[in-house]
């Protein structure tokens, strides 16, 4: 037995070493020109992460007062804002909120009616063309799953650790970085064009460290103090800064993209616990059955 085991181990180690070498060689040659995106500590990150209800409510406020002027969220029904594990507004609040919006409905008199909790979030523009016309030709992306449509790329071999930590917050990390990555002027470290000429910012675009290509059509959407947060019942206040707003709205966007995150993880714990215990029982049974058989 010993001989076989040690042989197997040598093989495994050899394979592992060679594997790392095979991957590392091209990785060293990789060009890391993209800016490094700082990973934030999200309440919903990691194994035990859950959404922070207060943060989601603040994020919703930022979304409603700022983002939703240009961005839609066509998959989000008002009723989901009352769900547990999310912003968890009361049903009354959600009904009142929905009623503030006019919903296009061909069967209603005049073509619109007041919103109800079952309605989806109305889009700020009737058509894609209207949206482009109002935004200098650019189309503001829908927010429904945007937090999962963006990500952070880690250099080899660090992304391998993501499989073990279950890192799924690349989207909020990117959005947070984007919100804080604006420059009023093109910075000196802006990348030069292929022919060596300095970075030229097209008219109507804004410079952002983290946007691919750096020229983004969206003007800096958040300013310090732009959204007024209501102090908590205990008088605690939250800073009204771009950094805070962007954290809150990124968290809210993650909730929009993944509203079932908390219940999913809760189920996951039960499933994993069961599987580990079950595997233990299966192993014990298997051993018992194979007892006395040389193999």
């Amino acid at each position: 037995m010993g001989g076989i085991v040690s042989m197997f181990k040598t093989k495994t180690i050899l394979a592992a070493v060679a594997l790392v070498a095979a991957f590392a060689a091209p990785a060293f040659a990789q060009d890391h020109s993209g800016p490094h995106i700082e990973k934030q500590s999200w309440s919903f990150g990691g194994l035990f992460g859950t959404y922070d209800q207060n943060q989601l409510q603040r994020g919703f406020q930022v979304f409603r007062e700022v983002c939703s002027n240009c961005h839609g969220a066509r998959l989000i029904a008002f009723r989901t804002l009352a769900e547990e594990g999310g912003p968890h507004f009361s049903e009354g609040q959600v009904k009142a909120l929905a009623a503030e919006y006019n919903i296009a409905d061909a069967t209603a008199e005049g073509g619109t009616r007041k919103g109800v909790a079952a309605d989806r979030w109305p889009s700020p523009f009737a058509t894609e063309q209207d949206a482009r016309d109002a935004n200098g030709g650019a189309l503001p992306p829908d927010f429904s799953v945007l937090a999962k449509a963006r990500g952070v790329t880690d250099a080899f071999p660090w992304w391998i650790t993501n499989y073990f930590t279950g890192y799924s917050e690349g989207g909020p990390d990117y959005i947070h970085a984007l919100m804080n990555g604006y420059h009023e002027e093109v910075p000196e470290n802006a990348p030069h064009a292929a022919d060596g000429t300095p970075f030229a910012l097209p008219e109507g675009k804004y410079y952002n460290d983290y946007f691919p290509g750096h020229a983004i059509s969206m003007p800096p959407p958040l300013q310090d103090g732009a959204v007024t947060y209501v102090p908590g019942e205990d008088g605690v206040t939250v800073p009204e800064t771009v950094n805070q707003y962007s954290e809150d709205v990124s968290a809210f966007m993650m909730w929009m993209a993944e509203p079932g995150l908390v219940s999913r993880k809760e189920t996951g714990f039960k499933v994993l616990l069961f599987l580990v215990l079950f595997a233990g029982l299966m192993y014990a049974t298997k051993r018992k059955i194979w007892q006395g058989i040389e193999h």
């Binding site: 999962k148 449509a149 499989y163 993880k265 996951g268 714990f269 994993l272």
Partner: peptide, 16 residues
Amino acid sequence: WFVFFAPDILGHPDNY
């Protein structure tokens, strides 16, 4: 583990 704790990690963000 993947299903419950990182269901999207094996995919590509662009598919959202």
